[in-house]
């Protein structure tokens, strides 16, 4: 019950501060989805993750992360085209929502602020 209240709050408040509870994996996947632009679905994201992060990840983990992100309202989805490799099954294509993009921007900004404060790198 507490969980549903929290989700409710997450969805209906526009305050970005409250959205910052984003895990490392969630952030990465969100970035990948934004990067892939309309080509992001379970398998392709897992491929991209392996390619760019140099680590392998299971498709189910990607699915779980994406469904979490969707619940938080950071990404949205629609059913895309079917291909022969998938045996005629459609893909669920994910896109970042405005909220998602804002969260990423916010994270980047706050990180940058910290980066800028590191003396050695200045």
């Amino acid at each position: 019950m507490i969980k549903s209240v929290l989700i409710f709050l997450l969805i209906y408040s526009t305050s970005i501060e409250q959205m910052q509870g984003l895990g490392y994996l969630e952030e990465t996947v969100l970035l990948l989805i934004m990067m892939m632009d309309e080509e992001a679905y379970g398998f392709s994201v897992s491929q991209a993750y392996e390619e760019h992060m140099g680590k392998s990840i299971s498709i189910s983990a990607i699915h779980a992360v994406m469904s979490r992100l969707e619940k938080k309202g950071l990404i949205e989805s629609f059913m895309g085209g079917a291909t022969a490799e998938r045996g005629g099954r459609r893909k669920r294509i994910f896109q970042a929502t405005a909220a998602g993009k804002a969260v990423i921007a916010e994270i980047k900004a706050s990180r940058q602020k910290l980066w800028n404060l590191i003396p050695d790198l200045r």
Binding site: Y41, G42, F43, S46, I59, G87, R89, R90
Partner: peptide
């Protein structure tokens, strides 16, 4: 549909 599709593609 999406899960099975992804797994088959993989």
């Amino acid at each position: 549909e999406e899960i099975q599709g992804d797994l088959h593609e993989a």
